[in-house]
Nucleic acid binder design. Structure first.
Lengths: 153, 153
DNA sequence: TAGATCCTTGGAGTGCGCTCCAGGCAAGCG
DNA sequence: CGCTTGCCTGGAGCGCACTCCAAGGATCTA
């Protein structure tokens, strides 16, 4: 049995990525398809993330195949969270560059994360505004439904 | 003075669309560029919405120019809210078709709105999860910043 | 050792939501 | 009358985030 690269990960589980099959640190070596299964991303996307500079250096086997570590999975989990906020990939690449550049970029990372936090708060507020509109419309249609029902009675 | 079609509406106001310049019902006739200014959409986008079936029928002047009404502005406001939820345009078109089809589609509209409401709740929950991750990272960098400061002292 | 499956690469293709262009009509102004 | 500005149309183009392809090498199972 294999994990094909075109698996539609939306249809087989209701919850998010499984994250359950991690190996203990020290013998944490995952192939690309294992990481795909663990994260819900496709292998294509994982290679693409690497090409655009969104990943740290990924280990290779003696024949050149990628071998991901638990640390890489942690990074991908963060990327997944940032992706949910709607942050553009280019901004995540910027953050990845700061991480690669070393400890002297702490302040800049801090600022970037704080700005992102503000964005997330704003988006939550937007969504709650939308929820209010939706609830008004929904109760309108619920009332209309009741009116139709009593008409039929 | 004119409203150009390429105005970047994100840079001139912090709040959302102005929505302030409405004319009273009865003499509510707006040109496409007025609606663009009012909604923050471009005239291009307004025409495109019409082409794909996202708009109701829009009145025309005797020379064929679009004349939007307050009702159209209300619809665009709803569309704007739905867009914030990440709802695909195709789904909004579906909703628009139900509205055009008449009162007998109330039940289906109700279901569609309820499903959208669930999506919005799920997205809010996702964002709050992301916020938690972000806050942990931010406090890590804040601590690191304090450590560096005391080191310098 | 054969055959199936998995992994590699650079580059091309896809779907979405706009975004813009060319060419032309219409209205207001000096 | 000419000039500027705004609006019209169909269709092409763009940016993003993937998504896939072709050709070939690596690894696993019987």
């Amino acid at each position: 049995m294999t994990v094909t690269e075109t698996t539609d990960t939306r249809t087989d589980t209701c919850a998010g990525p499984p994250q359950g099959e991690r190996r203990p640190d020290g013998k944490d070596k995952y192939t690309i398809s294992e990481v795909a299964a663990l994260t819900g991303l496709t292998a294509h996307t994982l290679r693409w993330y690497e090409r655009i500079g969104l990943m740290p250096h990924i280990d290779r086997s003696h024949t050149g195949q990628r071998r991901y570590t638990n640390r890489d999975l942690d990074w991908l989990a963060l990327v997944g969270k940032l992706r949910l906020t709607g942050m553009p990939v280019a901004d995540m690449v910027r953050y990845a560059e700061l991480v690669r550049a070393g400890d002297h970029t702490y302040a800049e990372r801090f600022e970037l994360l704080k700005a992102t936090r503000e964005d997330v708060l704003a988006r939550i507020a937007e969504l709650q505004g939308t929820l209010a509109v939706l609830d008004r419309k929904i109760s309108f249609y619920a009332d209309a439904g009741r009116a139709l029902a009593s008409e039929r009675a």
